[in-house]
Amino acid sequence: MTQETRKSIGQRIRSLREQRNLTQEQLALMTGVGRSYLAKVEVGTRNPTVDFLEKIAISLDTTLGNLFENL
């Protein structure tokens, strides 16, 4: 995954998280990761696995496809 794609996905995750009024800490707990890891995913400095992205999608009540839409 390119840096640009990671940033775009991270921005989408942050946007969806904020729309649902969740903090990074809350979403991190829901997905079983640390808040700092989630923060790095949101800014695009970590390369998340498909399994993790699926957990994010489920926790945000969306689809995995929606995270990649319009990239």
Rank of each mutant, 00 (worst) to 15 (best):
M1S: 13
M1C: 08
T2N: 13
T2K: 11
Q3K: 12
E4D: 10
T5E: 10
T5L: 15
T5D: 01
T5P: 00
R6Q: 14
R6D: 13
R6A: 15
K7M: 15
K7R: 13
S8H: 06
S8T: 15
I9C: 01
I9V: 15
I9M: 06
I9R: 01
G10T: 02
G10W: 01
G10F: 02
G10S: 07
G10P: 10
Q11E: 13
R12Q: 09
R12P: 05
I13Q: 03
I13C: 08
R14I: 02
R14C: 05
S15V: 06
S15W: 02
L16M: 14
L16S: 05
L16T: 06
L16H: 05
R17I: 05
E18Q: 15
Q19N: 14
Q19G: 00
Q19F: 05
Q19H: 13
L22W: 02
T23F: 10
T23M: 12
Q24N: 08
Q24Y: 00
Q24R: 14
E25A: 12
Q26A: 14
Q26L: 11
L27N: 06
L27E: 05
L27I: 00
L27C: 04
L27R: 05
L27V: 01
L27A: 07
L27P: 06
A28C: 04
L29Y: 01
T31Q: 03
T31K: 02
T31P: 03
G32V: 10
V33K: 03
V33P: 02
G34W: 04
G34S: 13
R35M: 03
Y37W: 10
Y37N: 04
L38Q: 09
A39F: 08
A39H: 09
K40E: 13
K40L: 11
K40M: 12
K40W: 08
V41K: 02
V41P: 03
E42L: 10
E42P: 14
V43R: 14
V43W: 11
G44A: 12
G44Y: 02
G44M: 12
T45R: 13
T45L: 14
R46C: 09
R46N: 14
R46H: 14
R46S: 11
R46M: 10
N47L: 02
N47K: 09
N47F: 02
N47C: 09
P48K: 02
P48Q: 03
T49F: 03
V50E: 09
V50P: 06
D51W: 12
D51S: 14
F52H: 12
F52G: 00
F52I: 04
F52A: 00
L53A: 03
L53M: 11
L53Q: 07
E54Y: 15
E54H: 13
K55C: 10
I56W: 03
I56C: 11
A57D: 06
A57S: 10
A57E: 08
A57N: 08
A57H: 05
I58S: 12
L60A: 03
L60K: 01
L60H: 04
L60T: 04
L60R: 02
D61C: 06
T62P: 07
G65P: 00
G65C: 06
G65A: 12
N66F: 07
N66S: 09
L67S: 01
L67A: 00
F68A: 04
F68D: 01
F68Y: 11
N70I: 14
N70Q: 12
N70T: 12
L71P: 00
